[in-house]
Design a protein around this nucleic acid. Sequence first.
DNA 1: CCAAAAAATATTGGATACAATATTTATTAT
DNA 2: ATAATAAATATTGTATCCAATATTTTTTGG
Lengths: 223, 223
Amino acid sequence: MKPTQRIERHTTAVEVARILRQRILGGHYKEGEFLRQEAIAQELGVSRIPVREALAILEAEGFAQREQYRGTVIPQLSLKEIEEIYKLRSMIEPYLLEQALLNITQETIDKVQELIESSKNCSDLNGWGELNFALHKTLYKPANMPLTMQILDQLLVRADRYLRMQRYLSTEILKESDGEHQHILDLIKDGRHKDAVDALRKHIAWNEDDVRQTYESALEGRY
Amino acid sequence: MKPTQRIERHTTAVEVARILRQRILGGHYKEGEFLRQEAIAQELGVSRIPVREALAILEAEGFAQREQYRGTVIPQLSLKEIEEIYKLRSMIEPYLLEQALLNITQETIDKVQELIESSKNCSDLNGWGELNFALHKTLYKPANMPLTMQILDQLLVRADRYLRMQRYLSTEILKESDGEHQHILDLIKDGRHKDAVDALRKHIAWNEDDVRQTYESALEGRY
DNA sequence: CCAAAAAATATTGGATACAATATTTATTAT
DNA sequence: ATAATAAATATTGTATCCAATATTTTTTGG
């Protein structure tokens, strides 16, 4: 078979990991499906070595489970995991925002505003996800807590798997979400930091509700 | 007949990752030192392939940083990271305990008591760390929150790097810690769940203070 | 025909060999 | 002698090949 997707910069292994991560998040592989090294290698036009390294990375990140001499499976989505993700987010993000607000600069505010604008004008669902991701990163960066950010990253990426399910069904939620982001930023601009943190808490809670509903209705549709 | 339970075996790569993780935690490699694939491979009597996979895993776990065509370095320890680790632990662990206590069984309590006894009788610093790890896992397991446990695992393993520094200097802290664990368990046995959670909070806070002091005095000794 | 054993096939795991890149040492021009 | 350049060396990254193990198919005994 001929390669369908090409490699660019970084090492091949990291590139393959990135592509597979995207595929997993995008629902390209069915839950419980076995990923075959040889198949992936041929599709991407590389040998199995970088593919294996990529699978090792993805396993360490929790996106895949390797079973010795059997293969690699994509772990199943679950309501339980949604609960956990959002419980953790609701613990970590308000704290990150609080800390960030202590050191926030006009530059950060402007950058966040820019990202919100881009997000409003973004019709591409994939791109919207990236922007949303960047927004959080930018907003929390002044907290200067790299480890916490790293942990949060993991949670956001995991949440993304569920968010994408949702995006297939409704794009209104995106605009709603943009509006909430704008509201939080406005409160920050006004110096109403405590209110901003509260608004963030609500934002996360609403987000969870949306995801749960989508997940549940998707399940119903399936069975 | 089909196997009811698959035997837990490890690939060379996972085994190498485990060994390197221990070494990193044990301070075998100096901060900022480059890990050479060939050297590790020869020491462990394997080829570089599993070593590379191990390094990829460790990087995904945050224990190493690979730079393309340059090598793998151990990230530096920092007071900042200590603060972050313990802030996150103080958010996550009390919540995990609360949830666990809702579903806790006598079996779990007995198991934890056993682990504490073993810990009291354990003179080996390395083994004590393992027991401490197992204790947390056992105690929080009834909460049934695998993702949260996974995140916590990362934090505990990271904290271990600093704890080990400490253990070189003082073994009294271990006994103190055992006592605190016993105290928490006693409160649980008495059904005083809220008090147990509070005791855990204090335990974590004290632990942080110990680690900070050790880290700072170690720094002074170094320069 | 059916279940168990054996062979065949598929797939993963690892070692060796080579290519790509970085680092170090040697060389050359001024 | 020194800075710039080129060669040599070291190290990482990847491909190919083979070994170990799992899965599937075929064979065989009842």
